[in-house]
């Protein structure tokens, strides 16, 4: 399954072509959402590394912070999926405005629990 040496340039080619296709085919709105997603992911990774390498005390604070990153990430990813015009056929009952309202409600509830758990 691992690509051989000769397909390495093909692989990097594939990654480049993927990046090009992504850049061309995605609207600016979705790209800003994607940037936020990348930020959340980096933030979550940083917290996780801190927990493993430095200390996991207090554990509930770590969990609250990490869960807020993860939760916000999935909510934003869900928003992105619902707003993406390519997915219109799948989300018949959820208009983009409704998607944003759901996103807002979910985030509020999530952060309420995060705040409670931070301790």
């Amino acid at each position: 399954m691992a690509p051989s040496k000769t397909s390495q340039p093909t692989q990097s080619n594939a990654v480049l072509s993927l990046w090009k296709a992504y850049n061309e085919n995605t609207s600016t709105r979705l790209k800003s959402v994607d940037a936020f997603l990348v930020f959340l992911m980096l933030s979550g990774i940083a917290q996780f590394l801190y927990c493993i390498l430095v200390t996991n005390y207090p554990f509930n604070a770590f969990l609250a912070g990490f869960a807020s990153c993860v939760g916000q990430f999935v909510l934003t990813a869900s928003l992105r999926a619902q707003v993406n015009p390519q997915n219109r056929s799948e989300f018949k009952e959820v208009s983009p405005e409704r998607a944003f309202a759901d996103f807002a409600l979910g985030s509020i509830v999530l952060h309420f629990f995060v705040y409670n758990f931070l301790g």
Binding site: L63, G71, L75, A77, S78, A81, E90, L110, F113
Partner: peptide, 19 residues
Amino acid sequence: SRLYVGYSSWYAVGTLASM
């Protein structure tokens, strides 16, 4: 994608809430 949205929102908020 519907499955993704439904499950992820349930799991992320629900697990944190259950703790």
